[in-house]
Design a protein around this nucleic acid. Structure first.
Lengths: 184, 184
DNA sequence: TTTTTAAACCTCGGAGTCGATGTATATTGA
DNA sequence: TCAATATACATCGACTCCGAGGTTTAAAAA
């Protein structure tokens, strides 16, 4: 998703792509050569991108990569209907968010944000005693577990506020768009 | 780490363990049977835990798992000197935090928190233009990318505040401990 | 001139994970 | 009484990913 997402902005060669992916998901979970290049080849085989060799500006020749229509379609499908992990795993979610603007339709964008919003709504029960009874945060012995739950709660609230503002905004824009096309 | 961490609290059988791991890292990134049970076996082979069969309280017999001294040592090594990913990847970091109290020595605990603190300090440059120049958040076109960076900044600050309070607290306690043992 | 360095790309083996599938046991209920 | 269900454990093949190693090219340094 990150490869196609970046290429949708402008053509890049593999090495540049690698650095951009590394900066995005990256200092968190860097991407290895052995992952990136085979994935590029896979996307090329699937006609999602084209490659043409260009002289390297500094050293060895580059393979300039360009996204195709099929690639754009694939990217949009991934964004429109993301796998569960992209909603629940923070790392993946942030990658998705970084490219959600390529999904162009504000109503569809709002739907994706709503899925995340729904996920954040369910209360987190992280720890249980020997009997399997959930332990409320204030009864936890470990200050680290207490902090963990505090931070979790606080960051969730921050994101929920932003999501709600954003969803409202997108729906309003979708409404205008409909009215401009003749009402609904 | 989660397996040994939970067993350090009290003995558990695999199925229970599975649910606890799933609750912790879990609704984020659930753990499959095909991952859990081979890992338990690996830890058993490494003498990190022992297993004795007990009658199942409900149905099939359980394998009650107990951590050994070697297992406790291993857990402490993982906690004391975590691999980079455990500092930089939120998911892994939260797992580490959930068991950091097993590291008992407040000075060692503070050192681990300090590593996380240091990581959070480096400013995040996530997006670049076609020339490779970093784009400041306010100049980003995509509202999603803007939000992404906002949320990132805000949640980082929340965690940094907590980390600083916690580190100060731990160092104070380490200081008392030293004085009680005769000064330093 | 030769070596070193850095850019840019590629491959392969091994480790880890998942998902599907299968087994055994005790309770429930039809 | 017999099937269905939930508990509890295990295995295997497919897939993904990483890391180590290697190649080519051009510029800089020796």
């Amino acid at each position: 998703m990150a490869i196609l997402g970046f290429l949708r902005d402008f053509p890049l060669h593999g090495y540049d792509l690698k650095n951009r992916v590394a900066s995005l998901a990256g200092h968190v979970r860097p991407v290895a050569d052995g992952t990136l290049y085979p994935t590029i080849k896979k996307l090329e085989d699937a006609q999602c991108l084209t490659r043409r060799t260009a002289p390297g500006s500094v050293a060895a020749p580059r393979h300039m990569l360009e996204i195709t229509q099929a690639g754009t379609d694939q990217l949009r499908r991934w964004l429109r209907d993301p796998e569960p992990g992209f909603i629940t795993d923070d790392n993946k979610w942030y990658v998705l968010l970084a490219f959600l603007h390529h999904l162009e339709n504000p109503r569809e964008q709002a739907l994706v944000l709503a899925r995340r919003r729904e996920f954040l709504d369910q209360p987190a029960q992280l720890f249980f005693d020997a009997n399997g009874t959930p332990i409320p945060p204030e009864q936890l012995d470990s200050p680290f577990r207490k902090g963990l739950m505090q931070i979790h709660r606080s960051t969730n609230l921050t994101e929920i506020e932003w999501l709600d503002r954003q969803i409202a905004d997108l729906n309003k824009r979708a409404g205008y768009a409909v009215r401009q096309r003749g009402g609904d």
